[in-house]
Design a protein around this nucleic acid. Structure first.
Lengths: 188, 188
DNA sequence: AAAGACATGTAAAACGTTACATGATTGC
DNA sequence: GCAATCATGTAACGTTTTACATGTCTTT
């Protein structure tokens, strides 16, 4: 039984679809998954080794040898598939948020409203950029919704779009409230 | 200069408002802040000690001695206020999400749609509950918006309400899509 | 020829959670 | 009297990031 290490499940999930190298896994995480989960080389490679020892994944005996460059493909084992399924079938899930933006805003009263406004604007810019990307993904996935597991990818991306649009609506309202407060402080 | 330890900033922010014990700090975090930031005793007490050594906070010489029970109030120092302000004035903020729910959904293709539906329903229940609480907070804060730092508390709570409502809209859509997929799989 | 992507991995350090240990006080 | 809450703290454990180390291949 795999421990609580969630990176294991990310890796198993990705390998359930196709064989990948550690480097590939990192790329996948960075592109499709990064807005709701992250992972670094420093966690991926050790996890792969540990999981190989546990028999959850195994190295693929490369049929065609790639000259010189070492490149290790991993595939999921039956034991790995069982572990993945077990995790999936447990509907409990821990969602852990760390919004430093909100933390700064919560303590905004210590400084001028202008300081909080800047923090919000910085957040707004970041989200606006990411949202564009997400919408691109979403549009691409919409076209191939019928294939394979694309519904699932589409749903996670839609989640991102929905929440990011909510963020931006909130940014507008928050800035407007803080502008008013700023004026009142300068007048009063 | 304080390190990167964000729990330090949470503590400084809370102490900027009033003197508190470690236990108080934990309670504040659990009530007002917990939906966007968490903290345990195991991180709070060591942080308080470290910050006292750094001169960011200091123990309050309790004027009225409380018999028997040890209870240590901390207050923020000038150095602590400077550190807090410096952090606040840096508008960059790291927001780190870990949605295990989305992770499970992303890999949902490995199992039946029903499995993903259950995961979403579990998420939905949790969010529905939290949303009720947040709306209560929001209503209470709306009445005292003029006082002190209440605008800032109101804004963070509003953020929660906005995003949680977005979550629930998404849950509905996601379930509907997965129901369709389930039917198609059973028919085809 | 140089820059950047490809590719694997290790070591140190930071960080945080969980469980444990201990005991007083308050409310039922 | 008992349970819950108040109150402080430590220790073990596990996870993850960051930086480092090394070298190849591809594109400009």
């Amino acid at each position: 039984m795999a421990k609580d290490r969630k990176i294991d499940m990310v890796i198993l999930g990705l390998l359930a679809h196709e064989n990948l190298t550690g480097y590939d896994i990192k790329k996948r995480i960075d592109s499709a998954i990064s807005f709701f989960w992250k992972g670094s080389f420093g966690s991926i490679y050790p996890a792969l080794n540990a999981m190989e020892e546990e028999g959850l994944v195994q190295k693929v005996s490369s049929s065609e040898e790639i000259k010189g460059r070492e490149k290790i493909f991993y595939e999921i084992t039956d034991k790995g598939k069982r572990a993945l399924t077990l995790w999936l079938e447990d509907s409990k899930a821990v969602n852990d948020m760390k919004y430093e933006t909100l933390l700064k805003l919560f303590f905004g009263g210590v400084a001028d409203p202008g300081v909080s406004i800047k923090t919000i604007e910085s957040f707004e810019r970041e989200i606006t950029q990411s949202l564009e990307l997400l919408k691109l993904y979403q549009a691409n996935l919409e076209r191939v919704l019928e294939q394979d597991d694309h519904v699932y990818y589409y749903l996670t991306v839609s989640f991102g779009v929905e929440t990011y649009e909510g963020y931006l609506r909130w940014c507008k309202e928050a800035k407007s409230l803080l502008y008013k407060l700023d004026k009142k402080k300068q007048d009063g």
